[in-house]
Design a binder for these strands. Structure first.
Lengths: 321, 321
DNA sequence: TATAACCATGACGTGATTTGTCACTATTAT
DNA sequence: ATAATAGTGACAAATCACGTCATGGTTATA
């Protein structure tokens, strides 16, 4: 690396770390300590406020406030960031609620006039639409913080069946289809579960000792949510349109295979208790999907269809308000 | 003067002048033109967007390098922006493809080490899931640019029925459910239409004179997509779960009303030709929805149900592969 | 069509700069 | 005392920067 480039990167590195030693930098840049010392002297002459202390635990320090150095964004980069933040604003709840709006504001007000004008023009011409849900998730910051610091929370959760307090150790939070979910270890069920954040009515840190789950994160989601013993093998064929519908509205468990001609198939093991859900799912796909297995699911679909038949059978029953 | 210092000053000089020639800088810095040329190339490699034009009145220019003033983001703001950009990265296509990654990179590398460590920790603990679609939309930048500058494009579009070239004047682009759409005036149909961007196979500026649509933008979407003459009034009751399903997977036209108890109703005018779509939509909602009107839709649902009944009727027919 | 004003690139030798090493000194926490 | 840290000076080897020359390309303009 040329000296000029090294100096530039040195400025960045020195701003990033607030404290550092000569040896540290020498290792990082793969040059000798003598060279780094010469470089640092040069940076000093260039006006970068460096300060050093000798002795053990000594080292260099940069005398500056904690702020990002003047970052040079190109206009297009600024626009991209602006729209990214803008996209997030469509979410009804966020773990960084206020921060996004202040950051957006800073970005906007510091932009130069002409750039701002162009951004304004774009504003009405790009949009990121996310399902708008009424459900609020007010405890996202607490959940995220607990996931990062790995502490146990006592939450008040209203599941479909019942509602009550339970202790959970959050792994992470994610949003999908306009709702927020929290993957966590549930001390009540003694397994990993996914909680809908809008169904969490309160969340406070608990004193219970946390498990050591540092290595577990959202990436391992699929493996954590284990199937119950009682699972059945599902197999369904999909038309081209069926494939698209599945992509748009992914169902949790089974694997989607797509063939070259655009058609595809869904297969995988699903829990027996989820059969009603899948029945509804496949009925929604209409003629674009054909379930081959299991028989139970086909039966459930048949049942659902005939129930619906009844609902839509007799015109005479229709009441109007 | 050392080379490093000259480069730093060169950056300043180049930002100060917007346009300059090699000779000019050579004289100013008292070095040969060859040296300046080498320096400028190095600056390019360092990421300064330089651009040159040959010929008389040609010379170098600096491209859109707007230095935002040193913005002091708080740690949480930086995190929020970082995740906003990160969220966008899950989209398979974007109108600012490269910009988001360079911006993300700048943010990340300029962060102080401790902040960065915390961000890293969060990385696996927050996620923004968007349907991953195989469909690519490579022409987004062209479409967006056309929408902003209001020019007419000649596109090669593959609609469900047919495929062919047509002229459109884009109003804006938006993404929903993992796909990109373009709202545009279609000169072929002489009305405003929504195009799926992944079905646009080519898009090139056309010479045709644009209409004056400056005042029209994405906000006016609903009004633009006018109903055909032949529309019917739709009315459906929804259970609580039905309301949630509708929120997650919004259907285009009708209005959703939600009552205090969580149940709701869908109503509005829909095109008669869309009845098959709505039949499938409501069948997908299963028992969570009851269509009251129109009769045609109830009939279509009945038809769809009996078709499906046939498909799932006889276990004996099931073939296995 | 010619010309001038630009940029672009390669080769090469000289001379300047950079770098690593070594041998020191100085300071300070433990 | 010892170890960890910064700081300096000297010197040779390696590397790099620079200017010069040569060549060639593009484009506006006359």
């Amino acid at each position: 690396m040329s000296k000029a480039k090294r100096l530039m990167e040195l400025i960045v590195a020195v701003n990033r770390k607030r404290r550092f030693t000569v040896k540290e930098l020498a290792d990082e840049f793969g040059v000798s300590m003598r060279t780094i010392l010469r470089d640092l002297q040069e940076l000093s002459e260039l006006g970068i406020p460096l300060y050093s202390e000798v002795g053990p635990h000594g080292g260099y320090r940069i005398l500056q406030e904690r702020l990002l150095p003047p970052i040079a964004f190109t206009e297009r980069e600024a626009a991209a960031v602006f729209f990214a933040v803008q996209a997030l604003r469509r979410y009804s709840s966020l773990p960084f609620e206020t921060e996004t709006s202040t950051a957006l504001n800073k970005f906007y007000t510091y932009m130069q006039e002409d750039v701002r004008a162009r951004i304004d023009k774009m504003r009405d011409r790009v949009d990121f639409i996310t399902p708008v849900r009424r459900a609020q998730s007010p405890h996202l910051p607490v959940l995220l913080d607990a996931a990062i610091r790995q502490v146990v929370l006592l939450v008040d959760y209203a599941s479909k069946q019942q509602r009550g307090k339970r202790e959970i150790q959050p792994i992470g939070i994610y949003t999908q289809g306009g709702l927020w979910y929290c993957l966590a270890y549930c001390f009540l069920r003694k397994s990993f579960r996914v909680f809908r954040c809008d169904r969490i009515d309160s969340a406070v840190p608990s004193d219970s000792p946390p498990l050591d789950l540092q290595q577990i994160h959202l990436g391992s989601k699929e493996e954590l949510i284990r199937l119950e013993e009682d699972s059945v093998y599902l197999y369904a064929d999909l038309s081209k349109e069926g494939v698209e519908a599945c992509e748009a509205n992914p169902c949790p468990v089974p694997l989607l295979h797509v063939f070259n001609d655009g058609t595809g198939r869904l297969e995988g093991n699903v829990e027996r208790s989820d059969i009603p859900y899948f029945a509804s799912y496949f009925v929604g796909l209409g003629k674009e999907a054909t379930v081959r297995q299991p028989k139970e699911l086909r039966a459930a679909i048949r049942q659902l269809l005939s129930d619906l038949m009844v609902r839509y059978a007799d015109e005479g029953i229709v009441t109007q308000e």
